[in-house]
Amino acid sequence: MQKRLLLDLTHFEITIKRLCCQLIENHDDFSNSVIIGLQPRGVFLAHRIHKNLQELTGIKNIALGELDVTFYRDDFRRREINAPSETRIDFSIADKKVILIDDVLFTGRTIRSGMDAMLDIGRPAKVELMVLVNRRYSRHLPIEPDYVGIQVDTIRSEKVIVEWKETDGKDAVWLLTE
Protein backbone atom coordinates (compact mmCIF):
# COMPACT_ATOMS: atom_id res chain seq x y z
CA MET A 1 0.00 0.00 0.00
CA GLN A 2 1.46 3.32 -1.16
CA LYS A 3 0.38 6.61 0.38
CA ARG A 4 1.03 9.87 -1.43
CA LEU A 5 0.28 13.33 -0.03
CA LEU A 6 -1.81 15.39 -2.46
CA LEU A 7 -2.48 18.43 -0.27
CA ASP A 8 -0.53 19.39 2.84
CA LEU A 9 -1.64 21.80 5.54
CA THR A 10 -0.40 24.96 3.80
CA HIS A 11 -1.89 24.11 0.43
CA PHE A 12 -5.08 22.94 2.11
CA GLU A 13 -5.60 26.39 3.62
CA ILE A 14 -4.72 28.16 0.37
CA THR A 15 -7.18 25.97 -1.51
CA ILE A 16 -10.01 26.74 0.92
CA LYS A 17 -9.28 30.47 0.64
CA ARG A 18 -9.28 30.28 -3.16
CA LEU A 19 -12.63 28.43 -3.20
CA CYS A 20 -14.08 31.15 -0.95
CA CYS A 21 -12.83 33.90 -3.28
CA GLN A 22 -14.41 32.15 -6.26
CA LEU A 23 -17.72 31.98 -4.37
CA ILE A 24 -17.54 35.68 -3.46
CA GLU A 25 -17.03 36.56 -7.15
CA ASN A 26 -20.26 34.78 -8.09
CA HIS A 27 -22.50 35.38 -5.10
CA ASP A 28 -22.02 39.06 -4.07
CA ASP A 29 -23.42 39.42 -0.56
CA PHE A 30 -24.87 35.87 -0.32
CA SER A 31 -28.32 37.25 0.51
CA ASN A 32 -29.86 34.94 -2.09
CA SER A 33 -27.43 32.02 -1.67
CA VAL A 34 -27.33 29.05 0.68
CA ILE A 35 -24.62 26.51 1.45
CA ILE A 36 -25.51 22.84 1.85
CA GLY A 37 -22.95 20.22 2.87
CA LEU A 38 -23.56 16.56 2.11
CA GLN A 39 -23.41 14.16 5.05
CA PRO A 40 -21.21 12.77 6.35
CA ARG A 41 -17.87 14.17 5.05
CA GLY A 42 -18.97 17.06 2.84
CA VAL A 43 -20.24 18.77 5.96
CA PHE A 44 -16.69 19.45 7.16
CA LEU A 45 -15.82 21.33 3.97
CA ALA A 46 -19.14 23.21 4.11
CA HIS A 47 -18.46 24.38 7.67
CA ARG A 48 -14.89 25.37 6.79
CA ILE A 49 -16.04 27.35 3.73
CA HIS A 50 -18.80 28.97 5.77
CA LYS A 51 -16.39 30.06 8.49
CA ASN A 52 -13.84 31.43 6.01
CA LEU A 53 -16.53 33.27 4.04
CA GLN A 54 -17.73 35.02 7.20
CA GLU A 55 -14.18 36.07 8.03
CA LEU A 56 -13.45 37.27 4.49
CA THR A 57 -16.71 39.13 3.86
CA GLY A 58 -17.86 40.09 7.34
CA ILE A 59 -21.35 38.79 6.50
CA LYS A 60 -22.64 36.92 9.53
CA ASN A 61 -25.87 35.35 8.33
CA ILE A 62 -24.91 33.11 5.40
CA ALA A 63 -27.32 30.16 5.48
CA LEU A 64 -25.66 26.79 6.10
CA GLY A 65 -27.38 23.39 6.06
CA GLU A 66 -26.52 19.70 6.22
CA LEU A 67 -28.15 17.14 3.95
CA ASP A 68 -28.19 13.36 4.37
CA VAL A 69 -28.66 11.33 1.18
CA THR A 70 -28.84 7.78 2.62
CA PHE A 71 -32.52 7.25 1.76
CA TYR A 72 -31.92 8.43 -1.83
CA ARG A 73 -28.92 6.24 -2.68
CA ASP A 74 -29.15 3.88 -5.64
CA ASP A 75 -26.97 1.17 -4.06
CA PHE A 76 -29.44 0.30 -1.28
CA ARG A 77 -29.44 -3.52 -0.94
CA ARG A 78 -26.38 -3.78 -3.21
CA ARG A 79 -23.99 -3.32 -0.34
CA GLU A 80 -23.93 -2.84 3.43
CA ILE A 81 -26.03 0.23 4.19
CA ASN A 82 -24.57 3.24 5.94
CA ALA A 83 -26.26 4.50 9.06
CA PRO A 84 -28.12 7.67 8.09
CA SER A 85 -26.91 11.01 9.45
CA GLU A 86 -28.92 14.05 10.37
CA THR A 87 -30.48 16.40 7.82
CA ARG A 88 -30.55 19.94 9.18
CA ILE A 89 -31.82 22.62 6.84
CA ASP A 90 -33.80 25.17 8.83
CA PHE A 91 -34.32 27.64 5.99
CA SER A 92 -36.20 27.60 2.71
CA ILE A 93 -34.19 26.80 -0.40
CA ALA A 94 -36.99 27.86 -2.75
CA ASP A 95 -35.67 30.27 -5.41
CA LYS A 96 -32.24 30.39 -3.75
CA LYS A 97 -28.85 29.74 -5.34
CA VAL A 98 -27.69 26.54 -3.67
CA ILE A 99 -23.99 25.75 -3.30
CA LEU A 100 -23.88 21.98 -2.82
CA ILE A 101 -20.66 20.83 -1.18
CA ASP A 102 -18.98 17.42 -0.90
CA ASP A 103 -15.42 16.36 -0.19
CA VAL A 104 -14.64 14.01 -3.11
CA LEU A 105 -16.38 13.72 -6.49
CA PHE A 106 -15.89 10.22 -7.91
CA THR A 107 -18.68 8.39 -9.77
CA GLY A 108 -21.20 11.21 -9.28
CA ARG A 109 -23.77 8.89 -7.74
CA THR A 110 -23.73 10.55 -4.33
CA ILE A 111 -24.26 13.96 -5.94
CA ARG A 112 -27.20 12.53 -7.93
CA SER A 113 -28.75 11.29 -4.63
CA GLY A 114 -27.98 14.67 -3.09
CA MET A 115 -29.77 16.55 -5.84
CA ASP A 116 -32.84 14.33 -5.53
CA ALA A 117 -32.87 14.73 -1.75
CA MET A 118 -32.50 18.51 -2.11
CA LEU A 119 -35.31 18.82 -4.67
CA ASP A 120 -37.64 17.06 -2.21
CA ILE A 121 -37.04 19.93 0.18
CA GLY A 122 -37.69 22.75 -2.26
CA ARG A 123 -37.13 24.17 -5.74
CA PRO A 124 -33.95 26.20 -5.87
CA ALA A 125 -33.29 28.82 -8.56
CA LYS A 126 -29.88 27.35 -9.34
CA VAL A 127 -27.58 24.66 -8.01
CA GLU A 128 -23.78 24.76 -8.07
CA LEU A 129 -21.43 22.00 -7.01
CA MET A 130 -18.22 22.45 -5.03
CA VAL A 131 -15.80 19.62 -4.24
CA LEU A 132 -12.41 19.58 -2.61
CA VAL A 133 -11.13 16.73 -4.78
CA ASN A 134 -12.31 15.99 -8.31
CA ARG A 135 -11.35 12.47 -9.44
CA ARG A 136 -11.44 12.84 -13.20
CA TYR A 137 -12.31 10.18 -15.79
CA SER A 138 -14.29 8.09 -13.27
CA ARG A 139 -17.82 9.42 -13.68
CA HIS A 140 -20.83 7.09 -14.03
CA LEU A 141 -23.18 10.03 -14.51
CA PRO A 142 -22.91 13.31 -16.41
CA ILE A 143 -22.11 15.47 -13.37
CA GLU A 144 -19.31 18.07 -13.23
CA PRO A 145 -18.30 20.44 -10.44
CA ASP A 146 -18.36 24.25 -10.64
CA TYR A 147 -15.67 24.80 -7.99
CA VAL A 148 -12.77 22.39 -7.57
CA GLY A 149 -10.06 22.29 -4.90
CA ILE A 150 -7.74 19.91 -6.73
CA GLN A 151 -8.04 17.63 -9.75
CA VAL A 152 -6.64 14.11 -9.57
CA ASP A 153 -6.44 11.48 -12.25
CA THR A 154 -6.92 8.10 -10.61
CA ILE A 155 -7.79 4.53 -11.41
CA ARG A 156 -10.63 2.68 -9.73
CA SER A 157 -8.52 0.70 -7.29
CA GLU A 158 -6.97 3.87 -5.88
CA LYS A 159 -8.52 5.71 -2.99
CA VAL A 160 -8.62 9.38 -2.06
CA ILE A 161 -8.68 10.11 1.67
CA VAL A 162 -9.52 13.57 2.99
CA GLU A 163 -8.54 14.15 6.61
CA TRP A 164 -10.06 16.94 8.70
CA LYS A 165 -8.77 18.63 11.81
CA GLU A 166 -12.17 18.05 13.43
CA THR A 167 -12.03 14.24 13.28
CA ASP A 168 -8.56 13.18 12.16
CA GLY A 169 -6.41 15.74 13.96
CA LYS A 170 -5.03 17.46 10.85
CA ASP A 171 -6.03 18.68 7.40
CA ALA A 172 -4.61 16.67 4.51
CA VAL A 173 -5.54 14.87 1.28
CA TRP A 174 -3.95 11.50 0.54
CA LEU A 175 -3.92 9.15 -2.42
CA LEU A 176 -3.73 5.45 -1.55
CA THR A 177 -2.51 2.99 -4.18
CA GLU A 178 -2.75 -0.80 -3.72
Binding site: T70, F71, A83
Partner: peptide, 20 residues
Protein backbone atom coordinates in the same frame (compact mmCIF):
# COMPACT_ATOMS: atom_id res chain seq x y z
CA UNK B 1 -34.66 4.32 17.26
CA UNK B 2 -31.85 6.25 15.59
CA UNK B 3 -33.18 5.38 12.12
CA UNK B 4 -36.66 6.47 13.25
CA UNK B 5 -35.16 9.83 14.30
CA UNK B 6 -34.11 10.35 10.67
CA UNK B 7 -37.53 9.35 9.35
CA UNK B 8 -39.23 11.65 11.83
CA UNK B 9 -37.32 14.52 10.25
CA UNK B 10 -38.46 13.31 6.79
CA UNK B 11 -42.09 13.24 8.01
CA UNK B 12 -41.84 16.90 8.98
CA UNK B 13 -40.78 17.95 5.48
CA UNK B 14 -43.08 19.36 2.86
CA UNK B 15 -42.56 16.25 0.73
CA UNK B 16 -42.87 13.46 3.28
CA UNK B 17 -41.51 10.75 1.06
CA UNK B 18 -38.18 9.10 0.23
CA UNK B 19 -37.48 6.68 -2.63
CA UNK B 20 -35.58 4.03 -0.62
Amino acid sequence: FSTADNFKEVLNRQIKKVPS
